[in-house]
Design a protein around this nucleic acid. Sequence first.
DNA 1: AATGCGTGGTA
DNA 2: TTACCAAGCAT
Length: 368
Amino acid sequence: MNFAQAIIQWQQQYGRQDLPWQLQRTPYRVWLSEVMLQQTQVATVIPYFVRFTERFSTVAELAAAQLDDLLTLWSGLGYYARCRHLQRAAQMVVSEFNGEFPATATALQRLPGVGRSTAAAILSLAFGHSAAILDGNVRRILCRYFAISGAVNHAATQQQLWQLAEDLLPPQQGDIYTQGVMDLGALICRRHTPLCSRCPLQSHCLAHTTDTVAAYPQAATRKERPQRHCYLLLIEQNQHYLLLQRPPSGIWGGLWSPPEWSPDLKQITAVEIWCQQKLGLNCTLQRQLPPITHDFTHFRLHLEPLLLQLKGGDLHHVKSTIKENGATLWYKCAPDSTAASPAVALPTPIKRLFAALANPPNSATGES
DNA sequence: AATGCGTGGTA
DNA sequence: TTACCAAGCAT
């Protein structure tokens, strides 16, 4: 039995059959799940997928939504450019394809956020075509099966893997095969502690027969992670905090967060002058909160929150200096959990910070 | 072609 | 605690 047939048979007996996007399998739901699953694990995606499909049952509804509402639903899932691309793609499907997803790789890859692998996943899972994907699961399986020793972030290795993925495609049952390679990678050919004894490919797997499974895939070489520091200005009045909408590109693009301040010299007392000049707000520095460290894949962020009190009673008065930089809002933060969590697209560490502000641990002593 | 882009699980 | 990396894509 060849590679593909072994995987197809294994998938039908042992593979996953009841993930949310496998039920009511429509192109819309397959597309939405595949975009969410880019660089994101299944268990993380499931609640987001459920919320999105409950709120938007068709691509047309998603296309007509407010982007800010989509970002609010997406908040916490990461890689926020995916969300912006998601809506642009939905609008293209409505305007150019009458609300029906196209069934060709070329057309699918013109949709923002849909690349070679995602297009192939939609073609196979939603339309039953034979189309090669190359995700982390397939990459790991192929590197082991063929004992490919090149680093997986090298272009030559990627090209070799894509060629193998194409060559191994079965003529029929492309949907089951694609689901099968992903299931095999996730459940059997795992990165750590693979379950080779249960693998339908073990007798022909070069890494297994030479007892070198742990050597594949060869890890990508990475640069050292740089570190970034800045102050986070929590400008408060009556339990409301000033938020600015971040620019569309860059980290946390389109999300809302408190103003950041990166002084050349660490003169904290100058923050009040900065608020006056840049934000047009009269503020009094109250105190410094415990620092926050947030790790990204490519850098480490150190945030030092400063609590400032807004002088004067007018919550809505914000000078035009802010508006030139984008939208603003005052975020209600209160111990009452329902009142404290309005629908705002916040980055995860900011969400946690506000939760801690609203419910200070051991407020009697201030220490834990 | 190499880099930027989030978050959480795992060892 | 740290490092790696997961249903990748855009630029």
